[in-house]
């Protein structure tokens, strides 16, 4: 449609700001123009150079469902303590996802539609992972962690303060969100890969969780990379944020020490991956 192309390139009034609202359209042409407002090329940059296909991810994400685990096997022969602890901790970490989503949404990241589309889908996946992990605990006769386990501190003023500070820090703050997302995903994934050592029957589940975590890490890593590379301010904010970074939240029970997650060689590898991000070369993040 030629008309469409012409309309899209015309200087459409940027009518999102309520104060400078365009006059209500009269007639088909005005309707057509309003329908296509903002539908123009040449808008910001980072998303356009991102290669991770968020739509494809959202379309194919299924989540790991309880019925995909061999629960009967765990009823017959329950997990032993180390396995139970690891599974319970992972379930707690999944539950923290919604609290994390909240923290992200009160920062400038919520205006990043690509990021929110990703987080929307990730929250859905983690809901099912958590249900599955809880089902394994239940089949083993262990009490599943309560709903509140793994929730980050919910002090009422906290999201407000965070909204205030991170909005003042502005758009570059998203780089920090993406970097900590990567870091926490990689750490969690270390524990996924330990599961088969704790009980071989956890191997199929561990593999699924690992694949999911790899996809999440790929998204975070690319976003962090693009954002850190572009802006010195993003690098400053991210380094400062990482110095204050604490993981996991206080309410995660049980809390396994970091050495339960992996060998020191694993942690060195994780460090190397983070250090490959622009501006984080000399940053020492994880102390065992």
């Amino acid at each position: 449609m030629n008309e469409a192309a012409a309309v899209r390139e015309a200087p459409v009034s940027e009518s999102a700001a309520p104060a400078q609202t365009a006059a209500p359209g009269i007639g088909a042409q005005a309707d057509r123009r309003a329908a296509a407002a903002f539908a123009r090329p040449g808008l910001p940059e980072i998303d356009q150079s991102a290669e991770f296909d968020v739509r494809a991810y959202a379309q194919t994400a299924e989540g790991l469902r309880p019925e995909q685990a061999d629960l009967a096997a765990f009823t017959e022969e329950p997990l032993t303590r180390p396995g139970l602890d690891a599974v319970a901790m992972l379930a707690g970490l999944c539950a923290g996802c919604v609290a994390q989503l909240r923290e992200v949404l009160v920062t400038p990241s919520h205006r990043e539609t690509r990021v929110t589309a990703f987080l929307t889908t990730r929250a859905y996946e983690l809901h099912w992972s958590r249900q599955t992990l809880r089902a394994i605990l239940a089949a083993s006769g262990a009490a599943a962690p309560s709903h509140s386990a793994g929730r980050r501190e919910l002090a009422p003023w906290r999201p407000a303060r965070r909204a205030l500070t991170s909005n003042l820090l502005g758009h570059d703050h998203v780089a920090l969100t993406m970097t900590t997302g990567l870091l926490e995903t990689l750490l969690t994934d270390l524990l996924h890969t330990r599961l088969p050592d704790l009980d071989p029957r956890l191997a199929p589940i561990a593999l699924r969780l690992h694949h999911m975590a790899e996809t999440h890490a790929a998204f975070y890593e690319e976003q962090a990379h693009l954002r850190l590379a572009r802006s010195r301010r993003a690098r400053l904010i991210t380094r400062a944020g990482l110095r204050r970074w604490r993981w996991p939240g206080d309410q995660i029970r049980p809390r396994l020490p970091l050495r339960a997650f992996g060998t020191s060689a694993d942690l060195v590898k994780l460090h190397a991956r983070l250090a490959s991000l622009p501006g984080l070369t000399r940053h020492h993040l994880v102390t065992a």
Partner: peptide
Amino acid sequence: LRRHEISLDFDQLKAKRLKLG
């Protein structure tokens, strides 16, 4: 909308949210 040559891509939605100010 895309079948009518109106594309709503992530980038354009972002522009809208940025303007909320």
